[in-house]
């Protein structure tokens, strides 16, 4: 059985149709990379999966549970998924340590010591153990994004969602964030990544989705789609970005 099952997903903002019917089935451990022009609905697709946007129509199942059912406990569902944002969205008034431990302490009722120990492990993993007592404003963009990944991992998610995680970074800092994401992929995490990093897509992605105007126009192994795009629109897009 697939881990994430998406049937006929639609999202409207007023009269604007951003998603016009998406069907996807994602298995555990898959690394889905979503590319496409801006306004194609990539981010909205990702945000629908953890219900930051409420789908207008269609169903989403996670582990067989329908999360688009209004009766479902949204907070419980979201604990299964970590989300990393383009703008990092670290909590500026909290230290790095508190950024990471807030959710485990408040939601999982973990003790401060336990949460702290776990946070240190995660900080080691993203290579920023020495920054535990700093505030976000004292860190570079790349460091902040690595902290944001650690913060999401602290809740032990089954799925990680990345919404253009390197788009707001200086070019020099893109590499360090992609490195952490690669490590995560190698460890077997199920990932959905919206990105413009074609190198990363090719290297890490197990499946590539090309989105345009609210639908998945083409999908397949990244290398195959890159070398032999079937659709005219895909060819046109790839010719500009590759």
């Amino acid at each position: 059985m697939s881990m994430i099952e998406i049937n006929n997903l639609h999202k409207h903002f007023g009269k604007l149709e951003v998603l016009r019917g998406i069907d996807q089935s994602i298995r555990q451990g898959e690394k889905i990379v979503v590319i496409g022009p801006s306004g194609s609905g990539k981010s909205t697709f990702l945000r629908c999966i953890n219900l930051l946007e409420t789908p207008t129509e269609g169903q989403i199942f996670i582990d067989g549970e329908e999360i688009t059912n209004p009766k479902v406990n949204v907070n419980k569902i979201r604990q299964k998924m970590g989300m990393v944002f383009q703008q990092f969205n670290l909590f500026p008034h909290l230290t790095i340590m508190d950024n990471i431990t807030l959710a485990p302490i408040k939601i999982k009722k973990m003790s401060k010591d336990m949460a702290g120990k776990k946070a240190m492990e995660l900080l080691e993993r993203v290579g920023l153990a020495e920054k535990a007592d700093n505030y976000p404003a004292q860190l570079s963009g790349g460091q902040q994004q690595r902290i944001a990944i650690a913060r999401a991992l602290a809740m032990d998610p089954e799925i990680m969602l990345f919404d253009e995680p390197t788009s707001a970074l200086d070019p020099e800092m893109v590499g360090e964030v992609l490195e952490v994401m690669k490590g995560l992929a190698d460890a077997g995490m199920t990932m959905i990544v919206v990105t413009h990093e074609m190198g990363f897509a090719r290297e890490v992605g197990s499946r590539l989705l090309f989105m345009d105007q609210g639908v998945v126009l083409e999908e397949g192994l990244p290398a195959e789609v890159f070398e032999n795009p079937q659709h005219g629109r895909t060819k046109e897009f790839l010719s500009k970005v590759l």
Partner: peptide, 29 residues
């Protein structure tokens, strides 16, 4: 910014928890 609320909610915090621990402390400042 809305991103602060979204970051809190995406971690699984409730609306009230996000308000008390994330939005309000920054707003008061």
């Amino acid at each position: 910014s809305k991103g602060q609320t979204e970051a809190g909610r995406s971690l699984g915090l409730t609306q009230a928890q996000t308000m008390t621990h994330i939005v309000m402390p920054q707003a008061i400042k």
